[in-house]
Write a protein that binds this DNA or RNA. Structure first.
Length: 212
DNA sequence: CAATCGATTGGCT
DNA sequence: GCCAATCGATTGC
């Protein structure tokens, strides 16, 4: 875990976004532990990034957590859905990574309940969906992804066979920022949104063979 | 399938 | 009031 914190302290937001692919994300709730592997992320480069909430160092009450230390959880509402992000740079430098999808591992039945009976890839193949599946709420706003009830567990992570970079989703008319490939996905994993069925790796889900 | 569109909360100007 | 880093149902090819 210390290695992971050091990684956040030394690397660029783009590098951290890729590093988070395969990361084990778990949420300890009153009714049990819910967890999965991160398979889809997007980097938001803060002050200079027209697509970021913190563009131009904008700072409003909602953005407070973005100006905190690396690993701080930043949640915001999009229509009726909460979206999960974490801070990636030093305090006062509001850059972050958004989590777009996870592959469920632990507590799948509870996730199905949280998702009102939906199953399979519909459980967590979108940013609003995984937040609902894991039962994430506003109380986690401003807490640390390293040691709160919602946390990453580097010891349990997987390694992607191949990482693909793509333009980010849902940010039209932002000049170069619309097209820059700041979205990163585990190639072939079925939980990636807007993916062709033929590109899915049904056998290994895009992971490297476990080191046996 | 792909494209379109309505729903509808919260944060900002 | 307006707009959004979305979801899900529906339409149409």
């Amino acid at each position: 875990m210390n290695d992971t914190i050091n990684f956040f302290n030394k690397k660029s937001t783009e590098e951290i976004a890729q590093f988070l692919l395969g990361m084990y994300l778990e949420h300890e709730t009153e009714t049990g532990t819910l967890a999965g592997y991160i398979v889809d992320t997007e980097a938001y480069l803060g002050p200079k990034d027209e697509a970021a909430h913190s563009f131009g160092l904008r700072n409003t009450p909602r953005l407070k957590a973005m100006y905190e230390k690396p690993g701080t959880i930043y949640l915001y509402a999009m229509h009726t859905h909460l979206i999960l992000n974490m801070v990636t740079q030093e305090k006062g430098n509001p850059q972050g990574v958004m989590i777009r999808a996870i592959e469920p591992v632990d507590g799948i039945e509870k996730m199905e309940k949280n998702r009102k009976g939906r199953k399979g890839i519909e459980l967590s193949n979108g940013p609003g969906k995984l937040v609902a599946a894991l039962g994430i709420d506003r109380e986690l706003y401003g807490q640390s992804i390293f040691d709160s009830s919602l946390r990453i567990v580097p010891e349990k992570r997987k390694t992607p066979q191949k990482i693909i970079s793509l333009p980010r989703i849902g940010i039209p008319n932002k000049g170069i920022w619309t097209d820059l490939p700041l979205r990163y996905v585990v190639a072939g994993n079925p939980y990636i949104s807007k993916q062709k069925r033929s590109d899915i790796d049904q056998k290994a889900f895009g992971w490297k063979e476990e080191n046996k």
